Computed example of a mutant assay.
Amino acid sequence: MSFEVVAGVDGSAPSEAAARWAAYDAYRRGCGLRLVAVTRDTRAFGDDAPQGMPGFVPVLREHLADLLPELAITCEAVPGTPWSVLASAGRRRGLLVLGSRGPGGPAGLTGSVALRAATEAHCPVVLVRPGAEDAEAGRGPVVVGVEPDRPCDEVLDFAFAQAARCGAGLRVLAARDRGTSAGEPGLGEAVARPWDTYPDVRVTSEVTGRSAVSALVEVSRTAALVVLGRRIRRLPLAALRLGPVAHGVIHHAHGPVVIVPHP
């Protein structure tokens, strides 16, 4: 199965922002974009929308096609529970992009839907708020939040690849827990391997004494994208599966955030 960028859409402003962000990302990747609307109608469509399909979908597809004529865009209506359908849409080899309602507001398509999808998806999930979706909306660096004592290869790989595609710098940010001495030497070792793969990416690293959520929310004001990891665990509460840092940043970030699942 080839790589595909998937955007969940529901006709709202956040989902339209997600679709635009997804379109630009798919264009940079050289892959297709699939718009997914959760509905009772099971028919898929391409150039023309059959009767009964959500009317906002073909309108949105036409708008994106005008922006990026070379981008291959398909659309699909899938029946089922919204968060479950969307969590499955990106599969393992893909990227799922959903709308966020902005700092302090509920995350996602219909309140908790995107938040739940982000906890269940096996692929990276990007949350985009209105105003941060255009290709030139954020000229800042890609920022990746890591744990200084155990940076994750999957999260760093995603951040380096994204920075390389966007022609952006990469800022590696870690929060030092009180009473620990973990610092930049560990970050340097973790960054060295993906940097060999993407030698043209401009990298800076920093260990801050602030809380991770506070530091990442602040840098999200100017970041092109904030990259965070989600450890795959089986816990009873969906919110806890994200971890407290990712959960806090999702709710308060000023720009797009991506959650990358990893073992």
Rank of each mutant, 00 (worst) to 15 (best):
Glu4Lys: 12
Val9Ile: 13
Val9Thr: 08
Ser12Gly: 04
Ser15Gln: 06
Glu16Gln: 13
Ala22Asp: 04
Ala23Gly: 07
Tyr24Val: 02
Asp25Gly: 05
Asp25Lys: 05
Gly32Glu: 05
Leu35Ile: 10
Ala37Phe: 02
Thr42Glu: 14
Asp47Asn: 07
Leu60Met: 09
His63Glu: 15
Glu70Pro: 03
Glu70Tyr: 09
Leu71Lys: 10
Ala72Lys: 14
Thr74Cys: 09
Ser84Tyr: 03
Val85Asp: 03
Arg92Ser: 12
Gly94Glu: 00
Leu95Thr: 01
Val97Glu: 02
Gly99Ile: 05
Arg101Leu: 07
Pro103Ile: 04
Pro106Tyr: 06
Gly108Phe: 04
Gly111Trp: 10
Val113His: 07
Thr119Glu: 05
Cys123Pro: 08
Arg129Ile: 03
Ala132Ile: 04
Glu133Met: 07
Asp134Pro: 11
Glu136Gly: 12
Arg139Phe: 00
Val144Cys: 11
Glu147Asn: 14
Asp153Glu: 08
Glu154Gly: 06
Leu156His: 12
Asp157Trp: 05
Ala159Lys: 02
Gly167Pro: 08
Arg171Ser: 11
Arg171Pro: 04
Arg171Trp: 08
Leu173Pro: 07
Ala175Trp: 13
Gly183Thr: 13
Leu187Ser: 07
Glu189Asp: 13
Ala192Arg: 15
Arg202Gly: 03
Val203Ile: 14
Thr204Leu: 13
Glu206Thr: 14
Thr208Trp: 07
Ser211Glu: 14
Val217Glu: 03
Leu225Ile: 09
Val227Lys: 01
Ala238Phe: 07
Leu240Val: 13
Gly248Gln: 00
His252Phe: 05
